[in-house]
Simulated scan of single mutants.
Amino acid sequence: MSQLIALRRAIAALEPPDIRGAAGLFGFGLADIDDALGGGLKRGALHEVFARRTMDAAAAEGFGLCLALRAAGERPIVWARQDYSETEAGALHGEGVAAFGGDPDRLILVRPRDATGVLRAANEAARCAGLGAVLAEVWGTPKTLDLKASRRLSLAAASSGVTLVMIRGGAEPEASAAMSRWSVAAAASTPLEANAPGPPAFEAALLRHRAGVAPKSWRVEWDRDRLVFAAPLPRAVVPVPADRPARAAREPLMRRAG
């Protein structure tokens, strides 16, 4: 309960509730995907990201963060993350958020003990129109995360215009009110000059879309400088300097509610 109270205080300090996010869609920044989706994914809706295998949990987290960054713009992001996810996929670090091009200072991390706490925090945060996006990370298949719970989350997101991304590790897709459902696995990235590690890469499969978009798979990389998804390059390239400095060295690395 203290986590939820702290979250309420944190989001109360944000923009007034009548300031809503931009209506409509947010794109991937990659024409092949955006065209297939009719322009992008719906704002103010629930979207699910499933790890294809247990070992792909970190990839699902990264892909979910990318979606949140695309949806949020310059506004804050709340990430409600079940404690067990840290055991399975490792802890979140500000340096990692910065490596994806995000600003750790605009990330509010909430760490509920169980799935029930994650759902409560996500529902509370999704009603705050001052936020850019909400990430809700749940491990396994808890009984509390059923069709009714997903409907509550969808209604909360629709009421504020805030995009909600549900990250699922160690779980199989089941009935939900999500607007879209994705399966994500890690992919080999294109190496940079001198065989340096390349950008994050994903095998992303659209499993379901409530608007009737046909299932399809893509292999994509994440451009942290432009905050867009990109098609993998066929050869190594010289990295282009970011147009803004990384925020990894700044304190605090991320705000934590509670």
Results as ranks from 00 to 15, higher is better:
G102S: 08
M55C: 11
G140K: 06
A214H: 12
T87R: 06
A204F: 07
E61F: 14
N123F: 06
A136M: 06
R43H: 13
H93Q: 08
A242S: 15
G161E: 06
G64R: 01
A71Y: 05
L253V: 12
A6Y: 11
G132A: 07
A12E: 14
T163H: 01
R75H: 10
A72K: 03
V237Q: 15
D114P: 01
H93K: 10
A136D: 05
A6I: 10
A231Y: 12
V97G: 03
P215E: 06
W218M: 06
I77S: 02
A129Y: 06
M254L: 15
G62A: 13
T87C: 01
E86C: 03
E193M: 14
G29Q: 12
P197W: 10
G258F: 08
A201Q: 03
R250E: 15
G170T: 02
T141V: 09
K42N: 02
T144I: 13
M1S: 15
P104K: 06
R152P: 00
A12Q: 14
A156I: 04
R53N: 10
R219L: 12
S180H: 02
G132C: 09
M1N: 13
A122S: 14
R255D: 09
A257C: 04
A31M: 12
D105T: 11
S160R: 01
N195G: 00
R9A: 14
G212A: 08
V162Y: 04
G212E: 10
A248C: 05
E172V: 12
A231E: 15
I19K: 14
L37T: 10
L14K: 06
L37K: 08
L153M: 13
V213Y: 08
A230H: 04
I167A: 03
N123R: 11
A59C: 13
G21S: 13
F50N: 03
D34T: 07
R226G: 00
S159F: 07
K216S: 05
D35T: 11
E86Q: 06
E137D: 13
A236K: 11
T144P: 00
R9L: 10
D223M: 05
L145D: 02
A157R: 01
A156Y: 02
T116W: 10
E124I: 14
A13E: 15
T163D: 03
R8M: 08
V184N: 04
L119R: 02
L207F: 08
T141P: 00
A158K: 12
G258D: 11
G170P: 00
G38I: 04
A156W: 02
L155D: 08
P76A: 00
P239I: 09
A99T: 01
G24Y: 08
F63K: 06
S180I: 01
L46Y: 03
S150R: 02
E86D: 12
A80T: 05
G64T: 08
D243I: 01
A201G: 11
E174T: 13
A89R: 01
P239G: 06
A187L: 09
A248Q: 09
L14M: 13
D103S: 12
G94R: 05
D35I: 00
R256P: 00
A91N: 11
L46G: 02
L153P: 00
W182A: 03
L37G: 07
T163R: 02
W218E: 05
G38R: 03
L69E: 07
S154H: 08
E137F: 01
R224S: 14
D32G: 01
A204D: 01
A149Y: 09
G44K: 02
A115C: 07
P234Y: 05
M166F: 03
F100L: 15
S159Q: 12
W139F: 11
P215F: 11
I167Y: 00
L107M: 15
